[in-house]
Structures are given as structure tokens and as C-alpha cells.
Amino acid sequence: MGQLERKRGGAPVAMRRLTLITVPYLWLLALFLIPFAIVFKISLSDIALAIPPYTPTMEDGLWALLSQLDFENFVFLTEDDLYWKAYLSSLQIALISTVLTLLVGYPMAYAMARAPEEWRPTLMMLVILPFWTSFLIRVYAWVGILSSEGFLNQFLLWLGIVDTPLKILNTNTAVYVGIVYTYLPFMILPIYAALDRLDGSLIEAAEDLGCSRLEAFWLVTIPLSKNGIIAGCFLVFIPALGEFVIPSLLGGSGTLMIGKVLFEEFFANRDWPVASAVAVILLLILIVPIVLFQRNEQRQAKAEK
């Protein structure tokens, strides 16, 4: 059938298909490849006291431009342990917060999917609602909650659980709290979508075949929400890896994240070439999970067909 139609469709169909394929690539070119090329070019340049603060620039002519580019800045990154420590620490923080977000988000998504039909839009709304407030304000609100004079400590002191305020603000704990809080909806929504689609009779079938509730959850619910879990984890992990605002507002001087290092390179050192090199490497690190994520999405789409 399909074959026949394609033949009969001829040129207009082919044109339409071509357009359909081209548009996302143009999008990719304009919003990803071109900016990346610019950043990559800067990463091969040298710092200069000028506007813009690097050399060579396009004004020097193409030949001068190409001949002066080198990988010096990348070599520099390998010479100072600050950078790989920051990358590793970012990976660690992103990984731990992704797991924490999953642990918090999954039960919420599960409860939403199990809630009575008429409640679900409201619950969904409640999950999305925080997006209506500025991200910065929401993160800043945690300063008020977590500081030693903050709500949390006052509450704990009032309960008598602690005698001296807990030091949470300006530690990695606060960064985890911030990331989990901020990215929770990104975890909940794909998992909810997966669980919502889950046919309830599958759970009954599992129980019927001898599973306890827990076993049915583990053997059926979890594997069938796997795609949601993977999507959610990537949606949290990828932005968390390069996160700057949360560690700088909630983290302490000991919080080492590549986003902060990038900011320092750019604003404190005013060294655009090194900052760009840091960004290029960050991007290369991100591409691996992004490609994995894409492949997962494609596989899922194929399976649903």
C-alpha cells in the first residue's frame, strides 16, 4: 500500500517530505550549529585587551583568522586540575540530584496517575503552577527557607528537633534541594504520561499470575514507565549539569560546578577564549546523554507504531 501511494504521489509528496525533513535541520543549524561554531572559534582564539576581548576576529581577514587559531586553551584546561574537578563535581551533583528528583518525582507521578480522573487536571496544574513565577524568585525563596534564620530552622527549633540551626544554605545540600525543587516537574510530567497510558489490567494480570503488589510494581509498572523515567532523568540531568543560578544562590564557596567556573572565566577572568573552551567541553559532555536521550525517544516512537 505504502509503496504504491509513494509512487503515485510523485513530485508534490516528495517536495513536502523534503520540506518536512529540512525544517528541523534548518532549526538545528540556526539555533545550535552556528552558535556552536562561533563559540568553538572563540575557544581557539587568544585573549586580548580589546573589543571584543579576543584575537583574531573576522576583521583580520580569513587567512589571519585561520592561521592564528590553536588549541592552546584546551591544553590549558588540562593543565589545571580545577577544570576536570569542576566537570566531575558537576557530573556528581547532576547525577545525585537526578536520582533524588526521581525518588521524589516518581511517587508523585504515580499518585497523579492513580488519582481519580476528575482530580488529574488539577494535580497537573499544581505541578506546572510554579512555572508561572520567575525561576530566580523561586530559587531565591529557598534562601529564606534554608538560611540559619530561615523558616525551616525556625520550625525545627520550635519543634525542638535541633538546638542550634542547621547549616543548610551555602552547602551542597541546598544545591540538591534547589535542583530537585526546580526540575521536579520535568521529572513528573514524562513519568506521569507513561503511567497514565499504563493499562490497569496489566497490573491485575500480574497479580493474577502470582505477583504481590510490590512485585507487580517492580516487574510491570517500573519497566513500562521506563521511557518516562529515562526521559525525566535526561530532562533533569542535562540542565542540572550546566546549572549556574542554583549553585551560585544556594551553594557555598565549596560548591564546585562547571557553570560557576564558566561564569568566573567569563566575568571574573574576562577570558572569553578559555570560557569558550570550557563551554565546548561541557557541550561535548552533554552530547552523549542528549544523543542517548534522542535514541530512546526514537525507539519509543517506533515501538508505539
Binding site: D80, V261, A268
Partner: peptide
């Protein structure tokens, strides 16, 4: 700046 980063972050 590198010294400063080290002082602030300990690394």
C-alpha cells in the same frame, strides 16, 4: 583570578 578561585572554592 586562578588564585582567587582556589581561595573561594578550595580547589
Amino acid at each position: 583570578t586562578r588564585l582567587w578561585t582556589k581561595i573561594k572554592s578550595g580547589t
